[in-house]
Design a protein around this nucleic acid. Structure first.
Length: 689
DNA sequence: TATCCTCGAGTTCA
DNA sequence: CTCGAGGATA
């Protein structure tokens, strides 16, 4: 009671102060996160403060101010966007693609400035060219009042309500000497991670996915309902000031950028000042090397003559400034034609549709094929044979068909029809109800599957038969020389001669490789059989647990499930394989042919605690290219020392060993705070063991 | 039952 | 490398 009356009297004043305090606090955290890139509090704490402010404002609406972070999430949807005329037109930049374009730009600047050839090189402000949407923001007396899209350059759309939801756009400028009027230009974009998360959410809800982060950003910014924009994690980077009344007078672009940062705008950390054509080229190379590992897409870099006085002297040509240029990187996306969709048959009979593309140069290579994964994926993308399609090849090497360009449809495109029978053996294609992949039901009757099974058996991690590649297997199977892995051991020189590209020398080499493979390990042998759901690591577990092949052959479902990482599904796969008479026959024939391995007693339930070294019992993940050894070699060393090598980074990972060009795994290791070693670090650790 | 962690499988180009 | 799915675990 007393407390309530106390609040009643002292309340409004106290609450006003608290609201102000919360607003300052929230703005400070957002600034640390988006501008300084250095989060000061966990998200949960931010949310708590945010909710407190929301509650306060709900109880006392008179406390709401337009720059309150609670006002970012807008009210009701608009009917449409108002058109606004830009006070200063939003121009485009000329493009450079080659080193010659660059030297020509530098020369034009010097000539335009009438600098003698011997003068100091021109100073350029260089920065990345974000692949997003250009926007303009207006602040009056330090408060955000309006934001608009570029439109046709002369006028754009008023998307203020949506821009308010972009947390990296300050609603109130920071600092003392704030200009009475400020117009800032910059780029709105979506980070790659946010784009992927968004597409996953869209797909899960059965809504359309976006082709790339730029389209996603554009789609999000043009939402009439700003509550949707608010959920889209857009980001903003500022790159110029076009109007300022009051505030600081900057003599150069680089100084303007520093000022923008002080006012609370995020500006790119990649910005730099470089000198002359050589400096431009070096900057282009440096940023290009980082392109794939940046958290957002860039399509080039931009150079601006740094000094304002020099910019003014150079002036404009038609619609573009003479003092700036955009230097583009090779596209990571290109358009090409989807000539046909064929299907491939995999080892397990999986039928995979493959896009045959009109060759296109993208991301540094010529792409002609791309997997379409499965029928669902293909339908989701809505591809038709004959479509013009977007092909992407980013840092992740494997090209991808992003989707069709619907505007280019002529009507003569055909739907792809999943074949009903296997194109290789004619068996029915079946698709289990709950699975994404369709499979050829022919099993080993299907030559395609037989070939894949042989290749799998011969591969390095299995029986390691050197030189037995796909061309050779094709011939051996097509000429009926080989049907099962056991047949390999019955081959002799007479049988091999007469094949294409197979004279005495290569025949002897192959026979020797087959001979060498007779001596192996139980784990390799089990893996080589190619049992469904039994990969390298499960094969190792099985070998360790059972010790002998006979023990494995006679195990029932229950005994199989005693093995770590073997559950009902894997156990069933094993039983199914072993129940097939012809599979058992092949196994027997292989043993008779002299394929052998050291057998040992079944492993005790839990192995005696491994010698306690620095490596024993630890889990490692290898990534990138190590300076002096292959990842396989490193893995062998770790395993020999009692450590475990795994494929993915998680909380349970003890060390990540990273070499050159380490990718996402290194990023993840840093996120999770997992210790990262280089090759020397690993060797040092092995020494201690 | 939901979530996390791994493993298996499939794939491109120089 | 990435996806999908099996297995383990809370």
């Amino acid at each position: 009671m007393d407390q309530l009356s106390f609040l009643d009297s002292a309340g409004p004043r106290a609450e006003e102060l608290r609201a102000k305090e919360l607003r300052t606090e929230l703005a400070r955290h957002a600034h640390a996160y988006y501008v300084l890139d250095n989060p000061t509090v966990p998200d949960a704490e931010y949310d708590r403060l945010f909710r407190e402010l929301q509650a306060l404002e709900a109880a006392h609406p008179e406390l709401i101010s337009p720059d309150s972070p609670t006002q970012r999430v807008g009210g009701r949807p608009l009917d449409g966007f108002e058109t606004v005329t830009h006070a200063v037109p939003m121009l485009s930049l000329n493009n450079a693609f080659t080193e010659e374009d660059l030297t020509a730009f530098d020369r034009r600047c010097r000539e335009g400035l009438e600098l003698p050839v011997v003068a100091e090189p021109v100073a350029y402000a260089a920065e990345p060219k974000f692949d997003g949407l250009a926007i303009t923001l207006i602040y009056q007396d330090g408060v955000f009042v309006q934001g608009a899209t570029r439109g046709d350059g002369a006028s754009g759309e008023d998307v203020s309500q949506n821009l308010r939801t972009v947390r990296s756009i300050p609603l109130r400028l920071r600092g003392e000497n704030v200009p009475s009027l400020l117009e800032v230009r910059g780029e709105v974009l979506m980070f790659r991670q946010a784009f992927e998360d968004l597409n996953k959410r869209q797909a899960a809800r059965g809504e359309k996915t976006f082709a790339n982060p730029r389209n996603a950003a554009a789609g999000s910014l043009r939402q009439l309902d700003s509550r949707i924009t608010a959920e889209r994690s857009l980001r903003f980077f500022a790159y110029s000031v076009v109007r300022a009344e009051g505030g600081r007078v900057c003599a150069s672009h680089s100084e303007t950028m520093s000022w923008l940062r002080e006012l609370g705008f995020p500006v790119s950390e990649l910005r730099d000042v470089v000198y002359g054509a050589e400096g431009l080229w070096a900057y282009y190379q440096k940023v290009g090397a980082q392109r794939d590992s940046l958290p957002f897409d860039i399509d080039g870099v931009v150079y601006k003559v740094d000094q304002k006085t020099l910019q003014d002297r150079l002036g404009f040509v038609s619609r573009a400034p003479r003092w700036a240029i955009a230097h583009k990187y090779p596209a990571q996306e290109e358009l090409t034609e989807l000539l046909d969709i064929e299907v491939q048959v995999g080892r397990t009979g999986a039928i995979t549709p493959v896009a045959r593309l009109k060759p296109v140069f993208v991301g540094g290579v010529t792409v002609t094929n791309a997997t379409l994964h499965n029928e669902d994926e293909l339908r989701r993308k809505g591809l038709r044979i004959g479509d013009t399609v977007i092909v992407r090849r980013a840092g992740d090497v494997i090209p991808e068909v992003v989707g069709p360009v619907l505007d280019r449809r002529t009507g003569s495109e055909r739907e792809f029809v999943m074949p009903l029978v296997c194109p290789v053996c004619g068996s029915h294609i079946v698709r289990a109800e709950d699975e994404a992949v369709a499979r050829c039901s022919g099993g080993l009757y299907c030559p395609a599957q037989r070939k894949q099974a042989l290749l799998h058996f011969a591969q390095r991690r299995a029986m390691d038969i050197e030189g037995l590649g796909d061309k050779l297997v094709d011939q051996l199977v097509d000429t009926d020389r080989v049907k099962t892995p056991a047949d390999l051991y019955a081959l002799n020189i007479g049988a091999l001669l007469g094949m294409e590209r197979m004279a005495e020398k290569s025949a002897l080499n192959l026979l020797e490789a087959i001979e060498k493979s007779r001596s192996t390990t139980l784990a390799r042998f089990i893996f080589g059989l190619g049992i469904r759901n039994v990969g390298e690591s499960t094969a190792k577990d099985l070998a360790r647990h059972f010790g002998t092949l006979d023990a494995l052959l006679s195990a029932d479902l229950e005994q199989l499930q005693q093995v770590p990482d073997v559950g009902p599904v894997v156990a069933a796969s094993l039983r199914q394989f072993l129940a097939e008479e012809h599979n058992r026959a092949v196994v027997e024939q292989l043993r008779k042919a002299g394929v052998h391995w050291p057998e040992h007693a079944p492993a005790a339930a839990d192995e005696a605690a491994a010698p306690g070294g620095a490596v024993a019992g630890k889990t490692f993940v290898l990534t990138g290219t190590l300076p002096t050894m292959t990842r396989d070699a490193a893995a062998a060393l770790i395993e020999a020392a009692g450590g475990k090598v795994s494929g993915s980074v998680s909380k349970k990972t003890d060390y990540v060993v990273a070499g050159e060009e380490a990718g996402s795994k290194l990023v993840k290791a840093n996120q999770l705070g997992v210790a990262v070693l280089d090759e020397d670090g690993l060797l040092a650790l092995l020494q201690q063991n």
